[in-house]
Design a protein around this nucleic acid. Structure first.
Length: 495
RNA sequence: GGUCCUGUGGCCGAGUGGUUAGGCAGAGCUCUGCAAAAGCUUCCACAGCGGUUCGAAUCCGCUCGGGACCUCCA
């Protein structure tokens, strides 16, 4: 078997063959840090975290680049934009870098909560104005851009004459030229399909840089072309992002990079699907977003409680990344229970000891378990099918629980299979899927609970159920469940 | 209007033409001082209508419904 990836460019699954093995270059469109991240933003970063983790698992040396879009026309919610052009004290004005810093920090915090691995390089748009200007100059020299009133536009019509504009998104240039939409600055463009490479900044615009065309700011697509080229070269392996970026963002990125570097920039385009809520896309313009801080705290009318970041990660991984995922409070509750069951079984598994006699185990069960485990690699190699991976783990769980509860004897599994289970669970759940326990580390509280466990065991041994129930009930009241296990042990968990 | 995707049981969702997806919820049983878990068993599907095929949730057509993109958007 070999890893197969669905390539948006060819609209089919292709065997993954890096340009320069074992090295892999991967660029993922990062967040625009003009506001707080919401649930919809979580999907691509968790999706590509899986891609990164799995490629690493396969032995590839991945350079993962994810940008921060911090250039543009930013205003903070609730603060008045008018102040920007007044002569008031500078501290009263909305300072773009202040917003950018605030929301970048919040984004990084959320990514840590989700246990995503940091990119190797996280370039910012504002840190690469020089590179962007150079790229625009190249496009002008090549004759594919034109300047109007201090703004520079990309000539899509000319590009389309010799290149395939629309190869990624399936757009037809003739159709694009016929759009009836009236957009700002449209009159400066030669054709409606053209897009801005550089925009002249109106006087009140506070994010502005000097350029050969006057003061202004970069267009919407050029940053990714410039930064991807700088860190991954003219042609690299993987470019990822949300499906909603396919057009015009990625289509335009291809055009820009192709003119500058004389080669199509990306071998495999990967796009994750969106998250919907009541069947509609969750997005700023729909006014239906749930911010990540609200998801975690439960402070939102649609949420009955806060949800652990791992619950959200698990929720996302239960669906294939190219399918839409419909959010609901009920679905999150189901995911939480599922993850809890999965994780408790995983912990139980690590505590199982092999049968001292170490027999061959039950042949049917051995075959079944090993079959389920062996199938996992194939699922991941089939375009990262995490949903199927998780389903197989759930099929192994009854066996683990049955052995733990002494319903089945330990001898039903060979020590070899048990060891393999432990290894595969660990590698997949923690390293490839990046899941973690829902409960925090306990520290001294854990030792206190162990004391209560021993007291309760003594009480039960003496049939002193008043004391044993009191311990369990009082702990339950403060949010800790203590359970009697079949093997005479007691377990507890916080919720 | 144009391009594309999609419609699976109470809910979420996986499905390569022929064998149980899985999770959550429901029902019964077992174990248990009680409880909670857990184990076993079980109910409930492939939008509709045609077609291809020995056989279709899976391929094709039509109808109806939902969605995405065409504008900043993960």
């Amino acid at each position: 078997m070999a890893l197969k990836i669905y390539n948006s460019l060819t609209r089919q699954k292709e065997v993954f063959r890096p340009l320069n093995p074992p090295y892999v270059g991967m660029y993922v469109c990062g967040p625009t840090v003009s506001g707080e991240s919401h649930l919809g933003h979580a999907r691509p970063y968790i999706t590509f975290d899986i891609v990164y983790r799995y490629l690493t698992h396969l032995g590839f040396k991945v350079r993962y680049v994810r940008n921060i879009t911090d250039a543009g026309h930013f205003e903070e919610e609730g603060r008045q934009a008018e102040d920007k052009i007044s002569k008031k004290a500078i501290l009263e004005k909305v300072e773009p870098m202040e917003l950018v810093h605030k929301y970048t920090s919040l984004f990084h915090w959320a990514m840590r909560q989700f246990n995503t691995i940091e990119p190797n390089i996280e370039p910012t748009a504002t840190g690469h104005i020089v590179e962007q200007i150079q790229m625009i100059e190249q496009i002008l020299e090549a004759g594919y851009g034109y300047e109007v009133n201090g703004s520079v536009y990309f000539d899509v019509n000319k590009y389309a004459a010799s290149h395939n504009y629309g190869e990624l998104s399936g757009r037809v240039v003739e159709d694009l030229l016929e759009t009836t939409r009236v957009l700002e600055g449209q009159d400066e463009k030669r054709n409606k399909a053209d897009f801005a490479l550089w925009k002249a900044a109106p006087p009140q615009h506070i994010m502005r840089w000097k350029s050969p065309w006057g003061e202004g700011f970069p267009g919407w697509h050029i940053e990714c072309s410039a930064m991807a080229t700088k860190y991954l070269g003219p042609r690299f392996d993987i470019h990822g992002g949300g499906m909603d970026l396919l057009f015009p963002h990625h289509e335009s990125e291809i055009a820009q990079s192709t003119i500058c570097n004389h080669v199509s920039p990306v071998k495999y385009w990967i796009h994750n699907n969106i998250i919907t809520i009541n069947g509609k896309k969750m997005g700023k313009s729909y006014n239906n977003v749930i911010k990540l801080t609200e998801m975690f705290s439960g402070n939102h009318p649609l949420l009955s409680q806060g949800f652990h970041p791992m619950t959200i990660r698990f929720f996302i991984l239960q669906t294939h990344y190219r399918s839409t995922l419909d959010f609901s409070n009920e679905a999150l509750l189901a995911a939480e229970k599922g993850l809890r069951r999965l994780w408790e079984a995983y912990e139980s598994l690590q505590n199982l000891s092999p049968d001292p006699a170490d027999g061959p185990g039950d042949p049917d069960l051995e075959l079944k378990i090993n079959g389920l485990l062996s199938a996992l690699d194939g699922f991941m190699e089939d375009d990262f099918n995490t949903a199927k991976v998780l389903a197989n783990f759930f099929e192994v769980i009854p066996t683990i629980n049955a052995i733990k509860d002494l319903v089945l004897p330990a001898s039903i599994l060979s020590s070899q299979t048990l060891l393999r289970m432990k290894e595969v669970f660990h590698e997949y759940l923690e390293n490839i899927l990046g899941l973690q326990s829902l409960t925090a580390e306990e520290g001294k509280l854990g030792e206190v609970l162990e004391l209560l466990v021993s007291i309760r065991k003594e009480a039960k041994a003496k049939k002193d159920f008043v004391t044993s129930d009191r311990i369990r009930n009082e702990l339950s009241r403060i949010g800790i469940d203590m359970k009697d296990e079949k093997n005479g042990q007691m377990s507890w968990r916080m919720h």
